[in-house]
Amino acid sequence: MPTCFIHPTTLSIIGTSKGLRTALEGCRKAAKENDPVLFQGEIGTGKLLLATYLHDEGAQHDKTLYVVDCAQPHGIIQKLLSEDFNINYFEFLSGGSFYFREVASLSLEDQKRLYHFCLRIEPLKIRIFLSSSQNIHFLMLDKAFDQNLYRYVGQWEISIPPLRQRKEDIPLLIEHLIENLNLRLRKSVQGLTPQAEQILTSYRWPGNIEELEQVLTRAILLGNEPYISQRHLRGYLLSSDYENTINDVMPLDRMEEILLKSALERYGYTLEGKKRAARALNISLATLYNKVKRYNLNE
């Protein structure tokens, strides 16, 4: 059963913004209990990182965190939700944690099965974490999320703000990421030019921290200078639209078009790419298709 195991480790949670501090305080309070926890936040905001932090702070700190991706239609999640699955398989995880990623991507029927699976493994004393990049409260209003599953996990709900709402953390994240990337890529980049820093702090980051790391990785690999400059960002962040509007006020529909284009270029124009773009933008897939048609953004 291929999946992801995360063992206790030293984490690097970077930032001093109010939203991040609130999320960390929620983790510290939840760590004193053993109830299920729901993590909400856009793609790339660090939900798994916060869940790992909570796991390490709680009674499960010396056990394993077992991660299952619900967004993989033919992944392990379907085996777990089958009626004949033997839960004793997870006896080794007793006292540990189970992290179900992107639970809102499951059908309503599978959400109900997940609720019953969580009840079945309770005797094994495994703590349950669920995460979603879609707003569960909106889904509940649309009757697109199972009420029993929400009630089961809704006692502890931790929201992680998107990067565009914690701009003061971006310079700290950049410094931390460059330091790590230098080690990984065997480079010696010292930082950013003022122009490059302005671009990165002004961008809306639809892919959040994951996108920031991707941009810095590309810039470090393409460049051969001690500082990342504006030209190293050209071709990814610096489309002509973005260069011309970075310091200007623009109509909201024009900003929406730019963000949609950025998200689609980030995740791709395939069906799966559009699903991920919709989750990153916190809109439904149907809404994304309507806007793609409106702005004629099909590849």
Rank of each mutant, 00 (worst) to 15 (best):
S107K: 14
L80I: 14
E91I: 03
L50C: 04
F90E: 01
I220H: 06
N34P: 06
I14W: 05
A277Y: 10
N180I: 15
P161H: 00
D56K: 05
T16A: 15
W205P: 02
S131F: 08
I126Y: 03
R151A: 07
D253V: 14
V153W: 01
T64N: 02
W205C: 04
L130A: 12
L237Y: 03
Y66P: 01
R113W: 02
H74I: 09
D146E: 12
E213G: 15
N208D: 09
E299T: 09
T287I: 04
R234E: 15
E122G: 03
L130V: 13
G46I: 02
L238N: 10
L259M: 14
E299L: 03
I87M: 02
R231C: 01
S131C: 10
L185H: 06
T245Y: 06
E257N: 08
D253C: 11
K143T: 05
R164V: 08
G95A: 08
A280N: 08
E256M: 13
A59F: 10
I13S: 05
T193E: 09
V249C: 11
G223Y: 06
K32T: 14
F39D: 04
T52Y: 01
F85C: 06
L163D: 01
T270F: 00
L139N: 04
M140C: 04
T9V: 11
K18N: 02
T45F: 06
Q198N: 07
L173R: 01
E213P: 09
R234P: 00
I136E: 05
M140R: 15
G44A: 14
Q147C: 06
R204E: 13
E225H: 12
H55C: 00
H7R: 14
G223C: 07
E211D: 09
E210M: 11
M250I: 14
I77T: 13
K293T: 11
E211M: 13
L222T: 15
I87C: 12
L221F: 09
N135H: 13
E33H: 15
T270D: 03
L119M: 12
A144Q: 15
V103L: 04
N290P: 00
P8S: 08
E25L: 10
W205L: 06
E225S: 15
K143P: 01
G46Q: 07
L20R: 11
I87P: 04
G58R: 03
Y227G: 02
Y152E: 13
R101T: 04
Y227Q: 12
A23I: 03
N244C: 00
P73W: 01
D110C: 05
E179K: 10
Q155L: 08
E179P: 00
N296I: 03
L183P: 02
A31Q: 13
G154Q: 04
H7W: 12
H61Q: 04
G273T: 12
K275L: 13
E109S: 14
L172A: 06
A286C: 00
I126E: 02
Y53P: 09
Y66M: 06
S188W: 00
R113Q: 15
